[in-house]
Design a protein around this nucleic acid. Structure first.
Length: 221
DNA sequence: AAGACCGACAACCGCTTTTAT
DNA sequence: AATAAAAGCGGTTGTCGGTCT
């Protein structure tokens, strides 16, 4: 059994006050972010470390872009969701200044609804059966949902998985320009070789490619 | 005017993954 | 290699403000 990250007794919950924000900003400015579990005590905050981390990452961090999403950002979220499923941190990583929480909220409150209105299932980006069938696409494949892959992180072949997602996307959403091509800097085997000692997960591979090349996931829109 | 309803979003919770020992 | 601690992630909930009846 693991101990909770923080002692819940005596910690504040709910919305952050200006004073709390300032304390957190001041502390991180002088000591840097990290060591979240010991940070609250050191910074004089009666908060859980996880709460501090979330507050910093989602709202206080510099270069956070606030406000409405631009149309191109929205389009990109839809495309990335078709590829990656609910991997909000990965999607947010492709949107400068946006956080995973913000992207997730925007998806759930705006885009999801919009897609449903358009007759598109937001889970798999396919048209509902009750709507007119679109012109047949040159790629036809059995159904494979982004959601199902999101729920199963241990995919042995990420490259083929993503390719399949792309194919599914191309064949299912004619209203949106989802013509995507993924180009990894090198073969999937390259990523696997780099991690002989680590268990290979989809998350590992994608992160690794991001590490090795800032534009590891290339989207040709 | 008041209560019900709904959408948006900030924050929390529990779980998984990574890192340190 | 095993274990614990820390960090990260995604689902869910709570709250607030706007709109509707």
């Amino acid at each position: 059994m693991r101990k909770p990250c923080c002692d819940k007794e005596g910690t504040n919950k709910g919305a952050w006050s200006k004073q709390e924000d300032q304390k957190l900003i001041d502390y991180i400015r002088t000591h840097g972010a990290g060591r979240w579990c010991s940070l609250p005590k050191a910074a004089g905050l009666h908060r859980c470390g996880k709460s501090c981390r979330l507050r910093w990452i989602n709202y206080l961090r510099p270069n956070i872009k606030r406000g409405n999403f631009a149309q191109d950002e929205e389009d990109l979220i839809i495309k990335l969701h078709a590829l990656l499923g609910n991997r909000w941190s990965l999607i947010a990583g492709r949107l400068p200044g946006r956080t995973d929480n913000e992207v997730k909220n925007y998806w759930n409150s705006h885009i999801r609804r919009k897609l449903i209105k358009m007759g598109i299932d937001p889970n798999n980006h396919k048209l509902h059966q009750t709507f007119p069938v679109p012109k047949p696409c040159h790629i036809s494949r059995p159904a494979s949902t982004a959601q199902s892959s999101a729920n199963n992180d241990r995919i042995s072949d990420t490259h083929s998985c993503l390719a399949e997602e792309t194919a599914t996307t191309l064949s299912s959403t004619p209203h949106l320009n989802l013509d995507l091509t993924i180009a990894f800097p090198s073969s999937p085997a390259h990523a696997l070789l780099q991690h002989k000692s680590k268990p290979t997960t989809t998350r590992n591979i994608i992160h690794d490619h991001q590490d090795s090349a800032p534009t590891g996931l290339l989207l040709f829109l």
